[in-house]
C-alpha cells in the first residue's frame, strides 16, 4: 500500500470470494501495482443478486443494496467491484436512489430501523472501468505493469450484460460492439479475437441457471460454438457469475449434452495477475472446473 494510491471500498460479492478466491487475491495485488488500494468493505453482504432478489421483490433489492452502499458512505469512499451482477445492484441502486425521491425514501424508511441512512455521497465503479480510465490507470500503465506478456494467446472477451446494459442507464457508449476490454487484453500482450454475437448473455442470469439449467446451458453452448469458430485459446470476462457459468457450465454441458469444449475461462484480473507475474498457484487456478493448463502452456 502506497501513500499516493487511490483508495476504494472493495465490494466482494459472493462468487469471487467464495468460489474463485484467486480473483479476489489478484484484484488486490494487481490493483496495488497500478496505484489502486482496495480496502475491505467490512460487513458487506450479497449485492443482492438482481435476478434472484429484484425479480421477486424490488423493494428488498433496493434496501439491501442500499445497506451495502451506506457501509461505503460511512468509510467516505467510492465503491469498486469485480462482478457485473454486483455492478447492476450496487451501481444501479446507487443511481436510482440518488435520483428518485420515492425510492430513496422507501429504502431509508427500512434502513432507519438499523440506524442507517442512504445519503448518496459516493459513486460506484467496476474495477475494469477504473483500469481503462486514463485518469485513473489507463492502458499504458497496464501495459507497463506487465512482466510476463501473454504473447501468442488468442483471447476472446465476454463483456457480460449488467455492466453495459441497459446502455441508457450506463456510460459505456456502444453496447453492441464495444472494444475497450479488448484494449485491456491487448495491453497484456495477448491477441484479442472477435467472434459472432459477442454480446450474447452467458445464460445464467435472472435466476435461469437455477430455474432451468438445461436452458441456461444451451445459451452457454451457443457461445462456445461461436468461440470455437475463431479458435480462441481462452475466454475472459469481468464477472465471476459469467465465469461460473462458462467454467462450471462446460462440465455441466458435458454431463447433460455430451459435448466437450475444454475452453479455459479466466477473469480479467486473473489474466492481469498472470501478466504481472503471479503464479497459477497464487491465483488458485486449480479451482477452475475447466483445466487452465493448455492456456498456461501457451503463455508460460
Amino acid at each position: 500500500m502506497s501513500g499516493n494510491n487511490r483508495q476504494y471500498a472493495f465490494f466482494l460479492g459472493c462468487i469471487a470470494p467464495n468460489r474463485y478466491p484467486g480473483i479476489e487475491a489478484s484484484a488486490i495485488r494487481t490493483s496495488a501495482n497500478l496505484g489502486i488500494d482496495l480496502l475491505p468493505l467490512k460487513g458487506a453482504s450479497c449485492c443482492p443478486a438482481p435476478g434472484a432478489f429484484g425479480a421477486i421483490d424490488l423493494n428488498v433489492w433496493y434496501a439491501m443494496a442500499a445497506r451495502n452502499i451506506v457501509l461505503a458512505e460511512q468509510m467516505g469512499m467510492d465503491i469498486t467491484l469485480i462482478c457485473n451482477g454486483c455492478y447492476k445492484s450496487i451501481y444501479e441502486v446507487n443511481e436510482k436512489l440518488k435520483h428518485n425521491d420515492d425510492l430513496r425514501d422507501g429504502a431509508n424508511e427500512v434502513l432507519a430501523e438499523i440506524d442507517m441512512e442512504f445519503k448518496g455521497t459516493i459513486d460506484v465503479w467496476h474495477l475494469a472501468e477504473l483500469y481503462y480510465d486514463p485518469k485513473i490507470v489507463g492502458i499504458d500503465k497496464i501495459a507497463e505493469s506487465v512482466t510476463r506478456p501473454l504473447t501468442g494467446a488468442k483471447i476472446a472477451v465476454h463483456y457480460g450484460c449488467h455492466l453495459l446494459k441497459p446502455g441508457k442507464e450506463r456510460h459505456f457508449g456502444d453496447t453492441e460492439n464495444p472494444m475497450w476490454i479488448e484494449e485491456l487484453v491487448a495491453a497484456l500482450g495477448a491477441e484479442p479475437v472477435q467472434y459472432r454475437n459477442k454480446m450474447q448473455c452467458c445464460g445464467a442470469g435472472g435466476g435461469v441457471r437455477g430455474y432451468d439449467l438445461a436452458h441456461a446451458l444451451d445459451i452457454t453452448n451457443e457461445k462456445m460454438i461461436n468461440l470455437q469458430e475463431v479458435g480462441a485459446d481462452a475466454l475472459t470476462e469481468v464477472c465471476p457469475f459469467c465465469q461460473l457459468q462458462y467454467d462450471r457450465g462446460q462440465v455441466e454441458i458435458e454431463e447433460k449434452f455430451g459435448i466437450e469444449w475444454g475452453l479455459p475461462v479466466l477473469h480479467y484480473n486473473e489474466l492481469l495477475g498472470l501478466a504481472q507475474g503471479m503464479s497459477p498457484d497464487e491465483l488458485a487456478l486449480d479451482l477452475h472446473a475447466v483445466d487452465v493448463e493448455p492456456f498456461l502452456k501457451k503463455i508460460l
Binding site: P50, G51, A55, C161, H162, K165, P166, M199, Q200, C201, G203, A204, G205, G206, G207, V208, Y211, D212, H215, A216, I219
Partner: peptide, 8 residues
C-alpha cells in the same frame, strides 16, 4: 421465469 435479464 426464463428471462436472463440480459437487457438486450
Amino acid at each position: 421465469w426464463l428471462c436472463t435479464t440480459c437487457y438486450s
